[in-house]
Structure formats: C-alpha cells, structure tokens
Amino acid sequence: MTEALPSIVDEMLAYYLERINERQVELIQGFYLYGSIALGDYYVHCSDIDFIAITEARLTDYQYLHVMNVHKEVEKRYPKSRMGGIYVTWADLGKLQDDIEPFPYYSDGKLKRAGYFELNLVTWYELKHHGIRLVGPAIEELGLEIDMQRFIRNMHLNLNTYWANWILKASDPRRLYSYLVWLRGSEMEWGVLGITRLWYTFREGQVTSKARAGEYALEHVPAQWHPILHESIRIRRGGGTSLYTSRKQRKADAIAYMHFMLKACNDMFP
C-alpha cells in the first residue's frame, strides 16, 4: 500500500482493510497511522501499530461485531501485529474528551465498545505532522489545528502525574513494578526514553521518537548519563549485548537519570 511501511506491516494492514470492507463496503472512510511507525521508530519486537480509523458515524452493534471478528482474524494470521487504535468520526478529529462521546477502540488484542483511548493532543499532533495516510483525504486536508500552548501544558501535567508516579512505583521495593523494572530491560527503557522524549519536546517544541530523543540527550546531558541512555537505545532497537553486568546498577542508573530529567523538565517552567 505504501513504501513508507515495513513489508510485513504493509501486508497485514492490507489484509485488515480488505477484510473490513468485504462485508461493510466503505465502512472505513479514512485510515491513518501515527506513533512510532509514523515517526520512523518502529521495531517489530516492541512497537505498536497505532491507527486512527474514520467512520461516518459510531459503529452499530453489527459493525462493531464485524470489526471485532476482523481483528481476531488479523491477530490469528499475524500474531505479532500489535495493532492499537481508535474508531472515530470526521467530526471527532482534533477534539478531546470533553468535546465528544466515547468511541470504540482496539488495545492489547481486544476491541472495546466505548472509551477515550489515546485521545490527547499528542495523537492529533503526530497525525498532523507525521501521520501516514492509507485511506481517505490527504492529512493536510483534514484541517487539524493544534493549540501548542495547551499541548505543552498537558505534557507538563503528564510529566508530574504519570511520570512522577512511574518513578515512585519503580523505586519502591515493596511494589511489584519495582521488580519488573529490575528484571525487564523493556520496562527500564520505557521509563528512560519516555521521559527523555518529553524533555526533548519542552526544549524543541516538537515531537520525536523515543530512540531519537535518546540520541538527542546524548548530545546535551552530562556524560554520567550516557551509559543508561546507550543501554536504553540498544534495548529499544533490539540488538547487541547489554552494557551492564549488573541489573541492580542498571536500574539504579535509570531511576537516578529519571530524577535528573524530572527536575530538568520542571526547571523550564515557572
């Protein structure tokens, strides 16, 4: 469908759209990708395929069951597909939770009837500036407008809620998540590169991928943080041998770095 996609993703999405339209012709009037795959940071072992599907109206019960069955077929045929996305209408584009009714969404291998999954300004920003169109009008014709001041405010709130809480959970030895961060490199990488991505946005006023945010940080933060950044980028990209001989030290470096990033981000705001 498009040369911008890895061949296996291109094949899987073509199958998905073919099956969707087999019984419900033109049900999907627009289909766009955003997230890591649109940012050029897709890795089959860890990345989701984030999508926005546009329908004329909210899915009827029949349409909902049809979409659910198609997702099951896709998961069976492509076990590592990792699709995740929302089913909204043209009128919903660019809006937030207070402005629209809950909508169907697909996450973690399940289709849910109604919610606000991934409904935030980051989603709309990535669609506007980095999105990939598979079905529907060109992205520049969608008329998306992003309030950048609100965008930054929301990300700052996310920093001091989600990420501050993440650090607390990962630091507390009484919590299971603290053990998972020690055990799984993917959990550690999520934290290190996730908060670094916010820091990049606060400095540059743009959104980038996690791996590129890590590379950017290597050019701007003290050398003491370089080992944990290199380790996180390595895990993200799925190659090479760990730079650490001790998981305990790796986790300690990750938590210390995230505290450093939390302060560095907050220091940019009054």
Rank of each mutant, 00 (worst) to 15 (best):
R23F: 08
E231H: 00
N154Q: 12
I86F: 00
E140N: 13
A91T: 14
L134N: 10
G84K: 13
G109A: 09
W163D: 02
F31C: 05
I37A: 05
T89M: 11
L33Y: 07
A164D: 07
H130A: 05
V67R: 01
A14T: 14
K112M: 15
D41A: 13
A91D: 14
G194R: 07
S186C: 03
I54K: 02
A114V: 01
G238W: 07
V70G: 03
E118T: 02
I49N: 12
G115M: 07
D108C: 06
I195E: 01
P104I: 14
E126M: 06
I49L: 15
Y244A: 03
I255P: 03
L134I: 15
Y32W: 06
G191P: 01
A53Q: 06
I235W: 00
A170T: 08
V207T: 08
G40N: 14
W182M: 02
V181R: 09
V88F: 07
A114K: 10
T241H: 04
R184W: 09
G131E: 06
K169M: 08
F269E: 02
K72H: 12
I255M: 04
E126V: 07
L243W: 05
L176H: 11
I167P: 01
I8K: 14
Q24R: 12
S178M: 00
G214V: 08
H130C: 11
E73T: 06
L111A: 02
I195T: 01
G109T: 05
Y200R: 00
I54D: 07
S209M: 00
D147K: 05
K76M: 10
V192L: 06
T196Y: 00
A164P: 02
M1I: 15
G239V: 09
K248A: 13
T55S: 13
K128N: 11
L168K: 12
K95F: 04
L183I: 01
K169A: 10
V9P: 06
I235P: 00
L157F: 09
R82N: 13
E141W: 03
T245A: 05
L168Q: 11
D147G: 12
